[in-house]
Nucleic acid binder design. Sequence first.
DNA 1: TTCATAGTTCGATGGTAACCGAAGCATGGG
DNA 2: CCCATGCTTCGGTTACCATCGAACTATGAA
Lengths: 226, 226
Amino acid sequence: MKEGPDIARIAALIGDPARANMLVALMSGKALTATELAAEAGITAQTASAHLARLLESGFLSTRKQGRHKYFSLASAEVAGVLEALMGLAAGAGHLRSRTGPRDQALRRARICYNHLAGDMGVQMFDSLVSNQYLASGEGQLRLTETGRTFMAGLGLDIDALAAGRPALCRECLDWSERRSHLAGSLGRALFARFVELDWASVEKATRIVTFTPSGARQFQAMFGG
Amino acid sequence: MKEGPDIARIAALIGDPARANMLVALMSGKALTATELAAEAGITAQTASAHLARLLESGFLSTRKQGRHKYFSLASAEVAGVLEALMGLAAGAGHLRSRTGPRDQALRRARICYNHLAGDMGVQMFDSLVSNQYLASGEGQLRLTETGRTFMAGLGLDIDALAAGRPALCRECLDWSERRSHLAGSLGRALFARFVELDWASVEKATRIVTFTPSGARQFQAMFGG
DNA sequence: TTCATAGTTCGATGGTAACCGAAGCATGGG
DNA sequence: CCCATGCTTCGGTTACCATCGAACTATGAA
């Protein structure tokens, strides 16, 4: 018999180990890219792509495209609720899977994302810029305000030169460890480049981890802290 | 990749159309036999047996053996909750499956089960016998009390002759439409035979439906009603 | 432009599990 | 005892679907 209640379709979707791994990984609330999810599930990118397409079509996931990345996250609290309920059942009659815990503390704190600052400190900087009204987000678009322009000039950045380039000046970028936005775009890149230039921070090659010097961290906190 | 979170095992179990049909059928709270569940899922008895074994082993179902029947029901409210949650999701993005509705009103009201009375009226009679203390259930065993013996004698039944037979005198039998007990055993058979003898009721051949005559229904209500 | 990376599409392959026929137990009724 | 019925076990077949290699598109960086 082929036909069955819709519940079967839904459950079968969760029932595949690869897809289940992806969904569990997304339970943290973070948005993950297709490649990350593929790694999480231990499958190749092609296979992951097929799975993700099915999960999307069935309304389990929502996406947000960002540059060449495609961020996936759970579509609704209801989906998360079902997964939670299933985990409850699984816990009842079997060993619970931990799968929590930070993978790498340093990575979460500060890292390079393409070419701009991400992680804890990236988010902090972004929030600070917004709350000081240096950045304004209107109609989904991020914009540098007049006072923001002055602030950036004070840091030694030539905004006019930056704005001339093709890529957007300001862009929000979703942070996988914080699941919140940080600043991308040519401005984000220029800002981080300036930090390196000022010797506030340096990036460990091949690890994406950003290390701040003591004095650099101090000045960063003074500028973007609390 | 073979390994996956336990959630995958659980979900895959629900994800098979045949099993999902069985589980949905059990969502009504009724206990169903293996054969009934096979029919519900549209598969043969052998296949159903395999499915039910897996559901049992995983703690989804509980069973109750009764004569040559094996009644299955959902093991816990938690299982029902998960199914409910899944149905909620399915309803969100698809057409809801009705699958409710009484199959046959007359069958639910009164029918023959082996050779005794079942359905609404069977349950009603059983409850009445118990609340009048004609029947007493001690340590899972059903017993006819002294006053019960007198009552049955008044109806023209020879209890001693019945008790001599091999099958138990009194037995509870689970009712599929009501999911509650009614009276089986040789006493149950004799009682129903007496009803027929008194011309209170007759059984429609090949349908198992029991039809009460107007006066029969009246006297039945007087004896076991309220 | 050229190169690298993220993601997708296509086609072929393989392993798993649902399924049924046949036969084997167990129970109930005569 | 025998027969009928409910359920289970076993073996073989089939169909689906997850998986990957290879090739393609799109975006970003130099």
